[in-house]
C-alpha cells in the first residue's frame, strides 16, 4: 500500500490484493446454478421492446415531422412543376430549355 497519509487516490497494489482475495472460483458451477434458478420468462423481446419503445416513438414523431416538412417543401407554388412540364412536353428538349431547367430558371 502507498504510505501517503490522507491519500484517496487509487492504490493498484491494494486493488490487486483485494481482487485476489475476493475473487471466487468455480465460475462455471456458479453460473450453472444461477441459470438453473432463473424463472421462465415469456421472452426477452418484451424487455427489449420496452427499452426500444421510447426510441421508436421518437423516431415515428421525427419521421412524421420530416415527411410533413418535405411535403410542404415539394408542394407546387404558383403553377406546375417546371420539371414536369419539361418532361410532359411532346417537343424535343433543346439546349436552351435544358440549361434553363438545370439552372433553376424553369423553362
Amino acid at each position: 500500500m502507498h504510505e501517503e497519509p490522507f491519500d484517496l487516490s487509487r492504490d493498484p497494489a491494494l486493488g490487486r490484493e483485494l481482487r485476489a482475495l475476493l475473487d471466487a472460483g468455480d465460475a462455471t458451477g456458479f453460473t450453472a446454478s444461477v441459470l438453473a434458478r432463473l424463472p421462465e420468462r415469456d421472452s426477452l423481446w418484451h424487455v427489449l421492446a420496452g427499452w426500444a419503445r421510447p426510441g421508436i416513438a421518437a423516431a415515428l414523431v421525427l419521421g412524421a415531422a420530416l415527411g410533413f416538412w418535405l411535403a410542404l417543401g415539394r408542394e407546387p407554388q404558383g403553377g406546375a412543376d417546371p420539371a414536369a412540364e419539361v418532361l410532359a412536353t411532346d417537343t424535343p428538349l433543346d439546349g436552351e430549355a435544358l440549361m434553363g431547367f438545370a439552372l433553376g430558371g424553369g423553362r
Binding site: 456458479f30 444461477v34 434458478r37 432463473l38 420496452g50 427499452w51
Partner: peptide, 21 residues
Amino acid sequence: ADDAAQEAFLSAWNALDRFQP
C-alpha cells in the same frame, strides 16, 4: 456470499424490464 450473489442475479433478472438502458 454465493447465495447472495445468486439472489442478486435473480433480482436483476426479475427487474430487467425496469432497468433503463
